[in-house]
Design a protein around this nucleic acid. Sequence first.
RNA 1: GUCCUCAUCGUCUAGCCUGGCCCAGGACAACGGCCUUUCACGCCGUCGACGGGGGUUCAAAUCCCCCUGAGGACGCCA
Length: 463
Amino acid sequence: MTKVATRFAPSPTGHLHIGGARTAIFCWLLSRHFGGSFYLRIEDTDRERSRQEYTDSILASIKWLGLDLDREPVYQSERTELYNAAVDQLLAEGKAYWCSCSPEKVEAMREAARQNGQKPRYDGTCREKNVGPGPGHCVRLKAPLSGSVVFDDLVKGHMVFDVAELDDMIIRRADGMPTYNMAVVVDDSDMEITHVVRGDDHLSNTPRQILIYQALGKPLPVFGHVPMILGSDRQKLSKRHGAKAVIEYQNDGLLPQALVNYLARLGWSHGDQEIFSLEELVKHFDGKNLNSAAAAFDPAKLSWLNAHYMRGTPVPELAGLVAPFAEGLGLTGLAPQALEKIIPLYLERNSSLDELAASMRPLLVSADRLEALPSEGKGSISADGKKHLTALRERLEAAPMFDAAALGTLLHDFADTSGLKFKEFGPPLRLALTRVGGGPGLPEIMEALGKDESLKRVDVVLS
RNA sequence: GUCCUCAUCGUCUAGCCUGGCCCAGGACAACGGCCUUUCACGCCGUCGACGGGGGUUCAAAUCCCCCUGAGGACGCCA
């Protein structure tokens, strides 16, 4: 058995989005499962739409996801000679021919076919004419006129296409560049790709590509067409579904492992298991159990997974990961220890790094950078509240110990001796300390803040 | 229009190949409760699906046919 090789082949016309990322993950997983290789090929033959910044972005996203490559990325724009050699070979062998039909003329043929209820196709005008090269001439594959193309798809099963459905596709444009189907076949063949895993929007391209493989006399790879990812309303994925480019998830504070786990599990399953380490994914992902139905993207489940992975990350590492998000909130020059100290207080209350940074902010800024409290209404401290705070402040100032355990006892004692209920002084104290309604326990917050800062925050709202 | 693909809880899915163990299991979400001097976590529980119609069979989510619905392809785009 030859060594398994897979490839992910995006065109650099946008950032790596969620659908592409899943395809890349599947390809990578399949190669790793079989101890094979994984490659990246940039399909940039469309000079108009391809942009270097997107290539860079895709490469960065692949890396961030942790998908390592076994060779440098291949750029189709640099391989024109290879494609031309293949086209010339087919021409020389009589398996392809020059065509002088203008695009307008071909479009007219298609329109006519459509009118007749036929599949729009090229009618083969130049097939036997031997027109030869010339300005505006393209090259077409001389496809078989009858028979069928058969292959077994990893996810769709046994596929049969009647070649009568296909026409003589263009394999080299008038400008000398190969067309997509030609370049893909030449590349996959040259790169010795054994498993072509891609979106099922390519399913109907497959018989065309198989025709090219056959004309070239090259062995066929195994094909696997994974269904598309839909939005939560089962419509085509778009921004409003919260389905974004990988780089945006990164910017939102998602952990790559969460995204990989979520995406791997979308359209693939291993019994009832939901959480997979990378090792488990590699161990179980053998190209089977792929769902042939399209799956809807669910941001809530992704979020749940992210929370799970955040909690499993060691605090010092987490501190390094949230630091950039804290900086984004204007919290610069923070000591790593400052973050490490309060991360445990907020970790289980957040499901992304940016939320975590935002919720920790009140404990990380100085008292004067907290926003002012409203004087009345929601979020304000009543006159009674201030009175209770004044009394509590005295106890706090007199506290010999300022750790969470001692402060917990102090608050209980205060409730007992003052006859006040917790809800009469707890919420005002919380507002004074953090300006936020919920969060970690008051004792923990005060310990993290320290005595001076805690008293200062109380003083600010009392003055 | 032609060809192709797909169809289990709101969502991701198990089960389907090799019919009975499925009056359909798990997870996310939602809802309720417990824990908690807040919020959250955690725990317990509730709601909730085989698209429709025909067959085949003692028996169908599972096999066959039709319908419906959804998606894709039909480029000198990829």
